[in-house]
């Protein structure tokens, strides 16, 4: 196994606040590795430790065999970073930024094709401050890639992008991976994680509470099936005693049944035998979002 990133027991605190408690993971060459987690879970902190931008309190890290604490300068020659928070000078033009950042490393890409790839061709002579939020974001992602990095860290890369631009970004990231670049992707979009990531880690309160492929994570909870239908029948208490049913929730005419295994067939049969024939009977497999919410708790605030 050719590990490009190796993290063991990473820990970082700000005064009393524990941002990263204890995080360990490995990323193989050419992998797209996702970090999911609620606001404040510690994703950005962990990633910026790997980029050598923050100094962890303890733990062992290796990126491309280099220690980000002591070999940051050499490391940064070989990685690309799109930071969650950063900016460019207000009056720098789009092409000047690409040209400048490609000069910072010796193996920089030709930046001209990137203008078109990232939909910035029309804006090549516009000042950074005059770009829309999504255009800025695209430029910052392009800057992370213009150095032709071996590992790229993208911290909420598609935040602020319109749906079409997101799809384009996904394709570009896939293409970059196909050329052998390793990608670490922090995201809040479950469809993005499902579409792009080979593996995802769910971070909660500074720890990894689950780590698997998106399909694996879903499968681990796939026992659960959710069935919904509408009915005006008054009494549904018998539903609870149908085999495999775990929970029944009713909101006026909407009914939601949660269960496992062949619960759909069992519920359907029971409904028919009680003379209820709903036309909108549906079963849903849990999505990555359901898995995420059940892992991290779905109450607002933490």
């Amino acid at each position: 196994m050719n590990d490009v990133i190796h993290v063991e027991h990473l820990r970082k605190t700000y005064g009393r606040k524990v941002a990263v408690d204890d995080i360990s993971f490995q990323v193989a060459e050419g992998e797209i590795f996702g970090l999911l987690g609620r606001n404040g879970a510690g994703k950005t902190t962990a990633v910026e430790c790997l980029e050598g931008l923050r100094h962890p309190d303890s733990g062992r890290m290796r990126v491309l065999g280099l220690d980000p604490r002591t070999q940051a300068q050499e490391l940064r020659q070989n990685i690309g970073a799109q930071l969650q928070e950063s900016a460019l000078p207000d009056r720098i033009k789009v092409w000047e930024a690409l040209d400048l950042f490609s000069a910072f490393v010796s193996r920089g890409n030709d930046w001209r094709p990137m203008l078109e790839q990232w939909g910035l061709e029309e804006k090549r002579n516009s000042a950074f401050s005059s770009l829309s939020g999504g255009q800025r974001q695209r430029l910052l992602v392009a800057l992370a890639l213009v150095s032709n990095p071996r590992v790229v860290f993208l911290d909420e890369m598609t935040t602020g992008l319109d749906p079409a631009a997101r799809r384009v970004a996904w394709e570009l990231i896939r293409r970059i991976r196909d050329r052998g670049t390793t990608v670490v992707l922090v995201t809040h979009f479950m469809d993005e994680a499902e579409y792009l990531c080979d593996r995802v880690a769910v971070v909660d309160h500074g720890r990894i509470i689950a780590l698997d492929s998106p399909q694996g994570l879903i499968a681990s909870r796939a026992g659960k099936v959710r069935i919904t239908f509408s009915t005006s029948a008054a009494d549904l208490s018998w539903l609870e005693s149908v085999p495999n049913v775990q929970r029944v929730v009713r909101r006026s005419t909407r009914v939601e049944v949660e269960g496992s295994g062949p619960v759909l067939a069992l519920v359907a049969t029971a409904l028919v035998s009680h003379g209820i024939l709903p036309s909108d009977l549906r079963a849903e497999q849990p999505s990555l979002e359901d898995v995420f919410l059940s892992l991290t708790g779905n109450a607002a605030g933490s």
């Binding site: 980029e51 931008l53 940064r76 930071l83 900016a87 000078p89 490393v105 910052l140």
Partner: peptide, 17 residues
Amino acid sequence: GYRERGVLRRLRASSVS
């Protein structure tokens, strides 16, 4: 201004000393 707005961070992340 560069420090305040995160331009310095951005430069640093690109191995600018």
